[in-house]
Nucleic acid binder design. Sequence first.
DNA 1: ACTTGCAGATGAGCTAAACTCATCTAAAGT
DNA 2: ACTTTAGATGAGTTTAGCTCATCTGCAAGT
Lengths: 283, 283
Amino acid sequence: MQVSLQALKAFESAARLGSFKLAAEELSLTPTAISHHISNLEGRLSVSLFHRHGRRIALTGTGARLAKATSEGFRKIDNALDEVMRAGTAVRVSTTSSLAAMALIPAQHEFEQANPGISLEISTGESVDSQSYILPVRYGDAARVEPSDIIRHESFNVFGAPGMAAPGSWNEGITLFTTQWKNTALPEPPLTAWLEENRLQGAKLNCVPFDQELFGIQQAMAGRGLVFCSTTLAKRLVDAKLLQSCDTREVASSLCYYVPNKNSFETRGAVRFLEWVDALLNG
Amino acid sequence: MQVSLQALKAFESAARLGSFKLAAEELSLTPTAISHHISNLEGRLSVSLFHRHGRRIALTGTGARLAKATSEGFRKIDNALDEVMRAGTAVRVSTTSSLAAMALIPAQHEFEQANPGISLEISTGESVDSQSYILPVRYGDAARVEPSDIIRHESFNVFGAPGMAAPGSWNEGITLFTTQWKNTALPEPPLTAWLEENRLQGAKLNCVPFDQELFGIQQAMAGRGLVFCSTTLAKRLVDAKLLQSCDTREVASSLCYYVPNKNSFETRGAVRFLEWVDALLNG
DNA sequence: ACTTGCAGATGAGCTAAACTCATCTAAAGT
DNA sequence: ACTTTAGATGAGTTTAGCTCATCTGCAAGT
């Protein structure tokens, strides 16, 4: 190889900082090493890169041109490296508020315990969703999604706080929190199917819709009524006895959680996360 | 330092060529070295960069992203390095056809003899002129040029082939080749001043203009007449006895050869060339 | 099915590149 | 004039990076 990349790195740093001493600090080397590198470089290129006026140095014209190119080149490489490095030691997941709040965030610590060295970042919101290196967990119509991308087919049931859970009769004018998505492309929660399945078509229900399942669940936990929601979201709360189902039978829906291009996520962290989330939701 | 730049270089090459073997050839290393570098890199980044299917390798998604950035980064650096390296070992000069053909090119070999390790490239033409790392030697009006940029104030005289050189009388209807620049911004060659200086205002001259001094000089050398041209261009031919002056007195002109921003050329080659060309034209 | 050849992985050992230390020089501040 | 600071220089030391030898697994030829 003609010129040493380390020498170039030293030069780039010295050129940018205008001092061998500072470059040495930046690269955790001695000023001597920088000096050697640069004179080596100047020798190989038979060009002088710095003017030396005693202890003061200044780039020559050629030096300045080279510095510009090396700085840009190394910056490009360093940025990519940073991204990749984060991809190796962290998984960045974006998902719906409800799944994040009810399932993923409460279990986040368990993931990190089970996978030391991989940190899990969970975020919600549109803006985060489609940037590169982010693993999006979306909620959608199973019929419109690549089957191999699906991580959980959703079922629904009615849940309530322990005291509320088993109403003597479904005709007492019970408040039932339901969900009405803002996004009209999403299939409706299968409330009529559930009423049929449980032979409660005639029940006297006071339905109160929210635009996110999360809110209805919180209302139910607080004892303000029952909630018709997905079993996935309720699971953890049921296990913790903060919520219980009403001896009713759950019904399947056409909703599912999925990860677009699931199989294209091949980093260690992403693979572990996908295994873990599968166990969490389906296990 | 976190990751080794040589490892990145190895990775970049392997990614681009799709083979450790070919990368090894490109970098003059053994395939083993490439393999070590890449597994080192994968270890440090805790990411796999290549899929291995037996003896076949393919980039992972992460690998492809990193490869794109490293390729671009290193390409930028390598290009700059190439340019600088040429700047150190070669001077690239552009100038007028006349100066190139009559003065610089004939003496090119002498420069390279006197400066081993520096090669001199001489080119003419508009397109070459203002690209970076090119040292342009231009012909122009001394009054409009930064004095420190001037390398030669031009004088003019009349020359002819040895047989032709001393006409018995200036009234024999002599053919005189002159120059009429295409570029009207250039001062005219000082023919009237020369005629006055030599008291030949009344001479019977058959003036034939060309748009470059070169052509008139060639005509004169071929014995077709005399030429009114700059002493710089004639000098070498006079020394070689291919041309001689007519016992007339030369006159100064406002024309000069100059190098824009002459003092900003600080490469070894450029400095040597400027010293040399000064000696060549003025010495 | 067996052989041969090829591409890459792995581990040990060696070499040269890269780093540091000690010493020196020149300029700038005190 | 004295001290301090930034860098140059040369010799000595460390370690990153290379090669060699060996091993594995696939694919193509016989």
